[in-house]
């Protein structure tokens, strides 16, 4: 359960939610704006803590983790794709992709190899030295996906990754997420309110009035 105090009243965003995701599955969370998709994703990856109940990822109860352990979990076992990509504006495409690898103290040689591989997969080898400000919305999201999956996380969370894109570009970004995650057997949970993208998921959950339906 997760509630927010708006000052005048308490809003119960998530109520009695329980679900289980198998390794390698792709889950879509659909729901209207304000239905609590982002809050649920944040709770799933540990960015937010539920008021009651627990979240278990790869056998680890997130609530039992210290802040340091949670940061370690975030940088080693999870990846996050934000709605706008959230690339670090002063780093180049390559540097953005390699950022989580540096965080995980990978060797230079392995970083170089992995970045090169991902640049080929997302088709942006020519733009490896470009800054985020020089990229289109679709390109930004592709780089964000590459960054989120660069360290081969067990779980990938994507909060409406296609919201700022047209349907075709959105589809291509989601295809990229699906292909890459399948390649490295990562579990994916993404939120969307675009019905056309739901077909890419193995399972679709709907959030309505704070409750989850299958």
């Amino acid at each position: 359960m997760k509630a927010f105090d708006t000052g005048r009243r308490q809003v119960n965003v998530l109520k009695d939610i329980s679900f289980h995701v198998e390794k390698g599955e792709i889950i879509a969370l659909k729901g209207k704006s304000g239905s609590g998709k982002t809050t649920l994703l944040n709770c799933c990856c540990g960015l937010e803590s539920p008021d009651s109940g627990k979240v278990v990822c790869s056998g680890i109860d997130l609530k039992a983790l210290t802040a340091k352990q949670l940061s370690k979990l975030l940088r080693t076992k999870t990846g996050f794709v934000f709605q706008q990509g959230n690339l670090l504006s002063y780093l180049t495409v390559s540097e953005n992709i390699s950022f989580p690898l540096h965080l995980n103290n990978e060797t230079s040689a392995r970083i170089k190899l992995r970045v090169s591989e991902l640049l080929s997969i997302i088709g942006m080898k020519d733009a490896q030295n470009a800054l985020p400000s020089e990229l289109s919305g679709g390109e930004t999201l592709r780089v964000a996906v590459a960054r989120a999956l660069s360290h081969k996380p067990e779980m990938l969370f994507a909060d409406e990754p296609t919201a700022s894109l047209d349907t075709a570009t959105g589809k291509s970004v989601l295809s990229l997420i699906r292909d890459l995650s399948r390649m490295q057997k990562s579990t994916v949970v993404f939120s969307t309110h675009d019905p056309e993208l739901l077909s890419m998921a193995d399972l679709v959950f709907e959030l309505k009035d704070g409750e989850l339906s299958y």
Partner: peptide, 16 residues
């Protein structure tokens, strides 16, 4: 501020 949030989500802890 947004970038700080991103860094935290990427795995930077408070100390970092």
């Amino acid at each position: 501020t947004g970038e700080i949030g991103t860094l935290r989500a990427l795995g930077f802890n408070r100390g970092t």
